[in-house]
Design a protein around this nucleic acid. Structure first.
Length: 254
DNA sequence: ATGGCCTCGGTTCGAGGA
């Protein structure tokens, strides 16, 4: 079973890339973030024609998440039930006995800003809800754009980034609280080359210079982690014309 | 270097992203 997360930065613009990528990579589950579409504009027909079922929750201009699946999806939940939030950032479904949780964690803008405080509150809400979900669903996968680089290894220039949003101590502590629920970073279950990232700024020729961050993650509960046979980041879509600034992260589970 | 780019909404600029 292959599980994937990909922040597409507008599904309207990126639908051709998504369909092309799925055609070349027929995975089981694809979690999308930043669809930026209201539900009435979601391209259901095109995705179903590609052989996928889909659930989604979106809003105008910002945020929006979706799960595409080759298999039946049950128990779909939108947003964090115990956390009041107008922003559409979470969707979850049960697929082949695996609880798949797709998240678009807030960016936080700048340390100390209102958006940063919202990010930390949001992460608390996610943690508290997931604690219960992990008890109900032993097989749980948390996939998404976390907007957190958990370690200096995940940052192209840790000195330049030190203390800033996406790498600050409080954000990293919130990431560790999620892993303390028994969730493992699938990417770090394996030996990986250095300087592997999932996001590069559109500016400064950042992709060509590999000035990136690893902020898109797949966390797996213990039963999934022990049967995970690989995790890789596919840079290919970032090389296309008009790419998303994020790339797909793929976990393979036996 | 108070930046560079991309997307959206809605007009030709501002907000947000990371």
């Amino acid at each position: 079973m292959k599980l994937v997360t990909w922040n597409v930065n507008s599904l309207k613009v990126r639908l051709p890339h998504v369909l092309q990528w799925l055609s070349a990579n027929p995975v089981d589950v694809l979690c999308l973030q930043e669809t930026k579409l209201t539900d009435d504009k979601f391209p259901v027909a095109e995705i179903e024609a590609a052989g996928y079922r889909v659930c989604f929750t979106g809003q105008k201009t910002y945020n929006g998440v979706a799960i595409l699946s080759r298999h039946e999806m049950n128990e779909v939940v939108k947003n964090i039930p115990s956390f009041e939030d107008e922003q559409q950032r979470v969707i979850a479904a049960t697929i082949n006995g695996v609880r798949v949780v797709c998240v678009y964690i807030p960016n936080g803008q700048a340390v100390g800003s209102d958006k940063y405080e919202y990010k930390l509150r949001w992460l608390d809400g996610l943690h508290d809800w997931l604690a219960g979900q992990c008890r109900i669903y032993p097989k749980l996968a948390l996939l998404g754009d976390y907007n957190i680089a958990p370690d200096d290894r995940d940052v192209h220039d840790p000195v330049a980034w030190q203390g800033s949003v996406l790498v600050s101590d409080a954000e990293r502590a919130a990431f560790r609280r999620l892993t303390a629920l028994g969730l493992k970073d699938a990417f770090r279950l394996f030996d990986q080359p250095e300087k592997i990232f999932s996001w590069w700024d559109y500016r400064q020729m950042a992709f060509r210079r590999n000035m990136g961050l690893r902020i898109d993650h797949i966390l797996l509960s213990e039963p999934l982690a022990v049967s995970c046979t690989g995790c890789m980041i596919d840079k290919a879509p970032r090389k296309l014309e008009q790419p998303s600034d994020h790339t797909p992260v793929v976990a393979t589970i036996f």
